[in-house]
Every structure is written in C-alpha cells, then in structure tokens.
C-alpha cells in the first residue's frame, strides 16, 4: 500500500502554508532560459518539471549568500550588539532534487562538528524538505558515481515519486514529512519507480586514492588552463559552504554579515602580507577537488559531492568536476608511477 497525492493537492498544500505566513520554496521559472529554486509567491509558480536540475541549489535556504549575523553600534568605548534576526520562519522546500537534499546532512556535519552554528541550525530546523525523484537526467548528472541515486532519500523529509498524470507517490521519511502529508494523501496500490540514474562516470574510491598520490601530476595544470577562475561552480554547488565574514557600516556602527566565498578566487587565500599560498588556478582547482574527495571524506567518511552536476551546467568555460575527475582517473591509470614525480607546483 502506498500513499499518493495529486499536483493539485500539492498546490493546495503550498497555498495553505503560504496562507499561514510560512515560506515555501521550489523550482520556478525566472526567465525563458533560467529555472531556479526561489521563494514561491503563489502555489501556481511551482514547476515540478521543466528542467533536470534548477540552476542553483537549496543550500541557499540554510546558508544564504548574504546573511546578516548581527548589528553593532559603537557607543563611546563600548560596542552594543543587536541581534536583529528573529527566529527564521518555517520553510517548506518542494520539488528539491534528491542530490540537493542529500547535501543537507553533509552541511549539518560541517556546521556542527566543532562550532555549533546557531544561524545555520535555526534555518535548518525550520526547514521541511520534500524532494522529487528524478525521472530524467542530463549529461552533467553523476549522482551514481558518488553513491546516490535518482530516488535517494538522504536529507529528505519526504520523497515524491512521479506516477504520471500529475500524480505522485509520497514516501515519508521523517516525522516532519509525515506531519506535512497527514490527511493529505490517498491510499493506493500504485508504486512509483524511476529509471536507473546516469551510468557511473568514475570510481570515487579510485579517484580518492589517485588524487592523494597525484598531487603534483601535470593533469592539474592541464585541466585548469581553461578555468577562468569564477565562483559559478562553488556557488551552484549544494555542498560548497565556504564563507567570508565582513563588517559593513561606518564608524558609528553597521552590520556583521556572512557572505559566500569560493576557493577559486585568488583573494580567498591571499594573506595580509601579500603572500598567496595558492598561486595559480591549477592549485585552486586542485584544492576544490581535494576538499571534496579527500580532505572532507577523511574526516567525515563521505564525499563532499552529491553528483548534482551543477558545476558542469554552470561553468562558463565548459568544465566542471565531472570532466576533471574523469581526466584525473585517466591520468592516474596511464601513469600509476607518477607518485614520485618531481613535477613543478601547478
């Protein structure tokens, strides 16, 4: 026995949430060529098909690109802090892709392993995520290469599996999901199923082993030549989470804010002395791959990548992790002895 809901039922649900003053976000069309996860202003705006993956990721709702942490006012020799952020409103994300939802448990680890990040946790706890299993894929998709699947449930409170004709099977995963759909579904004997995901593009274990032994391999320089050094990959990535803390204001006061930052910018590692330990795009790109497939897995026993393919789709230079990892694997297979190679620092 399964539980199903119609698209009309989903829209009704959204309408109810919006009516209660809660937030609902999901994929919407912002212009002819662009579909993004955004806050919905109406239930009708939700777009459950129309693209393989929206151009951004749902991390924006737990870690906004620009987040005011607090205000400060300088009073003589004292500074008064004013925390203006009220507890964030409850938010429902509908139609998140499973690869985006799977990034949330990863971000949970990051924002709680030593410093318990209140701003993140408050947003996270206010979030209910209903994912939509993928029925199609594009050439950028590689979830299966990092151990996920088109109907992965990690991070989702409920998963919708399309049954056709605007009907969805609802697979609740958590009490939050059950509470959301309680009384909204119709019992049915129909079971949703999705096609197998993209063919495996690389062996993540092998890549992990190779990148540690190939730190100085020429492949890093070769792959980075076409990289123009923007942050489109990192900012569209559901797991990239680096940020910068800035003060904005004047002598009398201002705000302290957390802004996204990305390891692909030279400024990311520029020291106050003027020295930059990551000279050149090759070392910056290598860092990003290393973090995802070695540094982070070493600590947390999982990859810092869900194979969503946004780095591929968004790269203005036609790169992205997929081709870099494939090239590394090929280079590693061709030159297993490169470990001791005295190659120059990229």
């Amino acid at each position: 026995m399964s539980q199903t809901i119609s698209l009309a039922g989903i829209r009704q649900l959204i309408g109810q949430w919006l009516g209660q003053g809660k937030r609902v976000a999901g994929p919407i069309r912002v212009n002819a060529d662009t579909i993004l996860y955004q806050n919905l202003t109406s239930a009708e705006a939700l777009l459950l098909d129309g693209c393989v993956h929206p151009g951004n990721s749902i991390k924006e709702f737990v870690m906004p690109p620009h987040e005011k942490l607090y205000e400060y006012v300088v009073k003589g020799r004292d500074v008064e802090l004013r925390n203006q952020e009220a507890f964030p409103p409850e938010r429902l994300i509908l139609g998140g892709r499973p690869c985006d939802a799977a990034a949330l448990p990863i971000l949970d680890h990051i924002f709680n392993w030593d410093f318990v990040d209140a701003a993140y946790n408050q947003r996270r706890q206010a979030l209910t995520i209903v994912s939509l299993a993928c029925t199609r894929q594009d050439d950028a998709c590689f979830c299966t290469s990092v151990g996920l699947a088109p109907d992965a449930v990690q991070g989702s409170d409920a998963l919708l599996v399309p049954l056709g004709n605007d009907e969805y099977e609802v697979r609740c995963q958590t009490p939050k999901g059950e509470a959301l759909f309680a009384g909204k579904c119709t019992p049915s004997d129909r079971q949703g199923s999705v096609p197998a995901g993209p063919a495996k593009q690389f062996d993540a274990k092998q890549v992990e082993a190779l990148i540690t032994s190939q730190f100085e391999a020429p492949v890093w320089r070769e792959q980075a030549l076409a990289c123009l050094g923007c942050g489109a990959c990192a900012y569209g990535c559901p797991t990239c989470h680096c940020f910068d803390i800035v003060d904005e204001g004047h002598a009398g006061g201002g705000i302290r804010a957390r802004n996204w930052d990305a390891c692909q910018f030279p400024l990311f590692t520029l020291h106050a002395s003027g020295h930059n330990p990551r000279q050149g795009q090759a070392s910056r790109q290598r860092q990003r791959v290393y973090h995802k497939f070695h540094i982070y897995p070493e600590k947390f026993k999982e990859y810092l990548c869900t194979g969503c393919g946004n780095c591929v789709r968004r790269c203005p230079a036609g790169l992205g992790l997929l081709s870099v990892l494939t090239a590394i694997q090929q280079a590693g297979a061709a030159a297993p002895a490169a470990k001791g190679e005295e190659a120059k620092q990229p």
């Binding site: 951004n56 123009l228 923007c230 489109a232 990192a234 802004n259 996204w260 230079a317």
Partner: peptide, 12 residues
C-alpha cells in the same frame, strides 16, 4: 536580487 557575486561575468 538574484546575483550571488560569483563573478563569472567578470572572469569571462
């Protein structure tokens, strides 16, 4: 409002 300052515009 959608800009997240990835600076792809500048870099390309």
């Amino acid at each position: 409002a959608r800009c997240v300052k990835c600076y792809a515009c500048r870099q390309v």
